[in-house]
């Protein structure tokens, strides 16, 4: 099983030591991903999704960032102790990232062809001419005519730019692709095209995928597994069916209740009360208790990981009680 893991994170802690206090961005996060699988990392702003992704590539700015963890290995190689030179070989080659905002992810003074060729040229033993030729192939693969390789980012629309960003990310056929809200800045019809593209390219190269998003709809479309994050830790993880149909954590329930239902437009939304906690001053015990409708005394002191099934676990102490149920109905 071990060798079959593309990613293995054990107890990741990331904090930013700032003048205003210590920002606890990620608190004891463990995550395993099998080769070829895709996992959706879902959560709201400040849940630590992006910081987690950045830690995988050791891109967390230091200072002020401090990253600690028991284990962080990528395809069996330890990332924590890896020298920077070696790490640079991995970034963009074995693991690459698609950033949220295609408008700022591209360099305005280079043509898109040059930007795609750059990562190929850096990582593979090819001539510049060969890299450029492959860059054009990549462009066509993502649905942009090859002759546009000599154009600059400002000449492309938002959707086209995101295609270029995807082309750069996939140019070296990475084993793991981290997509950080890749479609948030795009229109729905373009988003549909993008998700289709990512799905087909992933099948073609059997790339593993971490999809960071706040949209549970996107997760349902493209991922095999889901991890729901809150205040820097994973509070529920399981297969799509586990989390969507047999929801366990009160926060996950709250997320589902907040989404306008397409089939029942009259229903009043049930938002989660309050705000995400201040990461410099997290509540004791379970970070969600001040907002949780099911919270009791135990929750203020501790939180426990409870295993529901082989694939499904939830971080909520109340499941130690035999009869504890949340209101959301299970769908079989």
């Amino acid at each position: 099983m071990e060798n079959n893991r593309i990613l293995d994170i054990e107890n990741l802690v990331v904090r930013f030591e700032t003048d205003d206090g210590i920002v606890r961005a990620v608190n004891g996060l463990s995550l395993q991903l099998e080769k070829g699988h895709s996992i959706g990392l879902v959560g709201e702003t400040g849940a630590g999704k992006t910081t987690t992704a950045l830690s995988i590539l050791r891109l967390v700015p230091d200072p002020p960032g401090v990253v600690e963890c028991e284990k962080l290995s990528l395809d069996g190689r330890d990332i924590i102790s890896m020298p920077i030179k070696e790490l640079e070989q991995i970034r963009g080659k074995d693991v690459s990232m698609i950033f949220q905002d295609p408008m700022t992810a591209l360099n305005p003074v280079f043509t898109v062809g040059e930007q795609i060729a750059e990562s190929i040229f850096l990582h593979e033993d090819v001539s510049r001419a060969e890299a450029t030729r492959r860059a054009i192939d990549m462009l066509e693969l993502v649905g942009i005519p090859g002759e546009r390789a000599n154009e600059y980012p400002h000449q492309f629309s938002g959707g086209m730019k995101q295609r270029v960003v995807i082309a750069i990310a996939l140019a070296c056929h990475p084993k793991l692709l981290i997509a950080d809200e890749p479609t948030t800045a795009l229109d729905v019809t373009i988003q549909a095209q993008m998700l289709d593209l990512i799905r087909s390219l992933r099948e073609k190269y059997s790339t593993s995928l971490i999809m960071i998003t706040h949209d549970l709809g996107i997760v349902a479309e493209i991922c095999d597994e889901v991890a729901v994050m809150y205040a820097g830790s994973i509070i529920e993880k399981g297969t799509l069916e586990d989390v969507f149909n047999r929801t366990k954590h009160p926060y996950t329930e709250g997320l589902f209740n907040s989404i306008p239902n397409l089939n029942d437009r009259k229903a009043m939304l049930t938002p989660i009360q309050g705000f995400t906690p201040d990461p410099t001053d997290l509540p004791s015990g379970c970070a969600f208790w001040p907002r949780c409708p099911y919270a009791c005394e135990v929750c203020k002191k501790e939180q426990k990981d409870i295993r529901i099934s082989d694939t499904h676990y939830v971080r909520c102490s109340r499941y130690e009680e035999k009869d504890f149920r949340i209101n959301r109905k299970e769908i079989s």
Partner: peptide, 12 residues
């Protein structure tokens, strides 16, 4: 097309 493009958080 627009309506069909909405990702729905419902597996069924």
């Amino acid at each position: 097309a627009l309506l069909s493009a909405i990702p729905v958080p419902d597996l069924s």
